[in-house]
């Protein structure tokens, strides 16, 4: 019997494979439960403690830093194929605290708390002095640019009328004061774009089909607007029920990254927006 107090927990190295396994389970959980925005990828493991759990198993108390990728959360592209948002594009990081249970070799998330924050303007301009910064998503110029871009996309489309799901990202071009770059998520409706006279009569498809658009709206000196927009619909994914977190005493925590609370009865993933 060792002398002295024994720590109740153990501390493997942050780059230890077992720590990384728990961290990757946490990142997977983030991306399956994000309500909006972009998928995140693991950047750094900050700390790790492993607690014994009665009657069996261990709980990994892990703190991780993540970075935003360019893949929207509804984009079925595997995370490994998603690019990290570069600093010159105004990167966004996530700071997350997780409790991950390992039992019988299986990892499951007990609690999750994440905050996200954009890089500072100073950092962005240090690597790219003229690069645009993120703009507030509720700015009237942003909302207007999204409306104009979506209308232009629908006007040119031979397919379904697309409805706005969320404004995901926006930037004001610094050298062209009147240019607004926007990224937004859309969903297909049961209307044909060219035939729509009253969008309020259009309904989302029963089997939801989401897409993503990028557009730039530039106001010209005569007051007219130049619009460039491209929209892509994602391949529909088979709906699979998400595992419920195994939480004896689950923690519901508000977060700024947009995660669904873990104690919330889990709807189908496509309905979580």
């Amino acid at each position: 019997v060792p002398h002295g107090p024994m720590p109740a927990y153990r501390e493997p190295a942050c780059d230890d494979p077992e720590t990384e396994q728990a961290a990757l389970a946490a990142v997977d959980y983030i991306n399956k439960h994000l309500l909006r925005g972009y998928k995140h990828t693991l950047n750094q493991i900050d700390s790790i403690r492993v607690w014994p759990r009665r009657p069996t198993g261990e709980v990994y108390e892990v703190e991780i830093d993540t970075l935003e990728t360019t893949c929207h959360v509804r984009d079925p592209t595997p995370l490994a194929n998603c690019s990290v948002r570069q600093m010159k594009e105004h990167a966004v990081e996530g700071d997350c605290d997780f409790h991950v249970l390992k039992q019988d070799g299986q990892l499951s998330v007990l609690s999750a708390k994440c905050d996200s924050s954009p890089d500072s303007a100073e950092d962005v301009h240090r690597v790219c002095p003229n690069c645009p910064l993120l703009a507030p998503l509720n700015d009237s110029r942003v909302v207007h640019a999204v409306e104009v871009a979506l209308a232009a996309s629908n006007a040119q489309s031979n397919g379904s009328y697309l409805q706005l799901v969320e404004i995901s990202r926006a930037q004001f071009a610094p050298l062209q004061a009147a240019a607004v770059y926007v990224e937004f998520a859309v969903a297909a409706t049961d209307c044909v774009a060219k035939d729509v006279t009253d969008p309020a009569t259009c309904n989302l498809l029963a089997e939801k089909q989401y897409g993503f658009c990028r557009g730039t709206v530039t106001e010209k000196v005569d007051g007219a607007e130049d619009v460039t927009v491209t929209c892509n619909l994602f391949q529909t994914q088979p709906v699979t029920p998400q595992p419920q977190p195994e939480a004896p005493t689950p923690v519901a925590e508000a977060d700024a990254l947009g995660l669904a609370p873990v104690v919330q009865p889990e709807p189908e993933p496509l309905e979580m927006i």
């Binding site: 190295a13 942050c14 693991l42 950047n43 750094q44 493991i45 700390s47 970075l67 500072s120 950092d123």
Partner: peptide, 29 residues
């Protein structure tokens, strides 16, 4: 007490292993 040449003395300077935080995969902001 003496040590063999090339053998780090006990408690002497050596590579410091920092268990945490872990490596940065992309960049730190």
């Amino acid at each position: 007490k003496g040590v063999l040449p090339g053998t780090p003395a006990a408690g002497g300077p050596g590579p410091v292993i920092r268990p945490c935080p872990g490596r940065i995969r992309y960049f730190k902001i």
